[in-house]
């Protein structure tokens, strides 16, 4: 290594040092501690004691753990495809050279900037059984009113609906960037060959966009597994635990039921689940994700 290269490497390390320290102190460190805690019984107030894998064994027999896992999976299965489709559709609509398109993009992006708590409270209004806008619209259509947040059937879908509020946000921006990276000449060539708009979308746009779809898909699943705020603020897990999502149950155990070790075990189970899921996705990716250069990373 030349002295110059060494110096550059050193500068590089120095520059990422603050981040590295922060990562060790606030992410890696706490993770290591939580791994240790997951093997203990700890009520926060008195010293933890080692219980081996008992927390993990108890999880297996805890009906609320399974309920929370099921709710979270249901939320994910509903949210991820709907929000991906929504964001992609919006991105396709906003990826045109029409006047004031940037104003439209900004408008659709706005919900992303709203604080989640404020949004959640607005949604409790919209979904109010007696005075909500949604039920008002239903009644105008002659449809029966729905007890959105008080019904065990509708509460979780209501949370999904709230999540769709941000389809114009970051995910849409990433799609938009992806769409703009698709070379114009491919579209032109397809058009010259007589391909309709639908065929161009299916055979040109979507294959070339597949790495972006994949990226949004993986991140979307991880994010929806971690859903917490709406379930905490709007329904507090109810009615009858129908919106008790994984992270909410973890939080209750850690901070309300004096079972921090149990909560730490839950956190690690979730990490393993997400790791497994992501690994499977990266394996399956080769079947449907197309990289223009022909090479697939990883």
């Amino acid at each position: 290594m030349t002295p110059r290269a060494r110096r550059e490497a050193l500068t590089g390390f120095l520059l990422i040092l603050p981040w590295g320290l922060g990562f060790c102190a606030f992410t890696a460190g706490p993770m290591a501690i939580s791994l240790v805690l997951s093997l203990t019984k700890w009520d926060i107030l008195t010293a933890p004691h080692y219980v081996g894998l008992a927390n993990f064994a108890n999880l297996w027999h805890d009906p609320l753990f399974w309920m929370a896992l099921r709710n979270t999976l249901a939320y994910t299965v509903l949210t991820v495809p709907l929000s991906l489709a929504g964001s992609l559709t919006l991105a396709l609509l906003l990826n045109r050279r029409v006047p004031a398109v940037s104003v439209l993009r900004a408008l659709f992006y706005l919900p992303e900037l709203m604080p989640t708590v404020a949004t959640a409270i607005i949604w409790t209004w919209l979904l109010n059984t007696h005075f909500g806008l949604l039920n008002y619209l239903l009644s105008r259509l002659g449809l029966p009113q729905v007890a959105w947040l008080e019904s065990t059937t509708w509460a979780l879908p209501s949370l999904v609906l709230m999540g769709l509020w941000t389809i114009g946000g970051n995910r849409m921006l990433i799609f938009l960037a992806g769409l703009q990276g698709i070379p114009e000449e491919l579209h032109e060539a397809a058009a010259l060959d007589g391909a309709s708009r639908g065929r161009r979308l299916w055979h040109v746009t979507l294959p070339l966009l597949s790495p972006v779809i994949f990226f949004n898909f993986v991140l979307g699943v991880i994010a929806s597994f971690q859903v917490f705020t709406p379930a905490y603020i709007v329904t507090n897990g109810g009615p009858a635990d129908s919106t008790l999502v994984y992270v909410l149950y973890l939080y209750r155990n850690g901070f309300q039921y004096f079972q921090m070790g149990y909560a730490a075990a839950m956190a690690w189970v979730m990490l393993l689940l997400l790791l497994a899921f992501t690994w499977v996705q990266f394996r399956l990716m080769q079947r449907w994700v197309y990289y223009e250069g022909g090479a697939t990373p990883g």
Partner: peptide, 16 residues
């Protein structure tokens, strides 16, 4: 806290 949550979940089903 756990008792109130447990009871609340059952009571929700009574009110519906």
């Amino acid at each position: 806290a756990e008792m109130v949550d447990t009871l609340g979940s059952e009571m929700d089903l009574v009110w519906t």
